[in-house]
Design a protein around this nucleic acid. Structure first.
Lengths: 110, 110
DNA sequence: TTATTAGTTCATAATTTTGTGAACTATTAA
DNA sequence: TTAATAGTTCACAAAATTATGAACTAATAA
């Protein structure tokens, strides 16, 4: 496999993190497996939309499904996903702090 | 800030990982700061395209630029970005392995 | 001053992603 | 069998992302 092929696949997996609803789902499933309806209850929105997003995440290999009776139970394929997500959340928080402290400096000096 | 606002910003930061060229750039910059031309030399492609991708990453707060003389030096804002990226790479590798061992099982049983 | 280097910005077209509602499938319950 | 529940799939429009090349700007060198 070439480097470029790896970068492509890697980006595909990372894309699965790049949507607010999918971030929310990763957050929710970080605490454990849940069925579709329970996820929908927590996130809100249309079931068709959630279903499609879950399917994207499953296809990219960051979620897995367990079908049992009428219900589909979703969970993270790996704790690594949750950890990567938390790291990126920290990057966001650090950025927000930097931005805020920059604003404070401006308002003090200005 | 509401949860949904956090999920939005978080997804914005994560989106910055969701492109092959940007993954490659994160890989390259994991080893340290480089100027635009050196990055371009390693990634290939059009300078305008790279410039736009670097600008996306900078705006989302995962890269920073240092302008010096004629050159613009880019670097990761945080090691956390590189670590998140490595975790997601591991998720990919784990998936590929699982997929491969599934194929082997099929070819053995089939 | 003029040219060169280093990169950014812009306009545009092509592609991809997203949200929506309706239709569909599969499992269980009555 | 019929109805209800749980969820998926489909078609389509709207929005966002991407690649491309030309034009532009800023700093240095001749």
């Amino acid at each position: 496999m070439t480097d470029k092929e790896i970068f492509n696949l890697h980006a595909e997996v990372c894309k699965a993190l790049g949507h607010p609803l999918r971030i929310e789902v990763i957050d929710i499933l970080g605490k454990g497996e849940l069925c579709f309806t329970d996820i929908l209850e927590r996130t809100g929105g249309l079931k068709s939309n959630l279903s499609q997003h879950l399917s994207v995440m499953t296809n990219k290999g960051i979620l897995k499904v367990r079908r049992h009776g009428k219900c589909n139970y979703y969970s993270l394929t790996s704790k690594k996903v949750a950890r990567a997500c938390i790291l990126m959340r920290e990057v966001l928080i650090d950025n927000l702090k930097k931005h805020q402290s920059a604003l404070i400096k401006i308002s003090v000096s200005g």
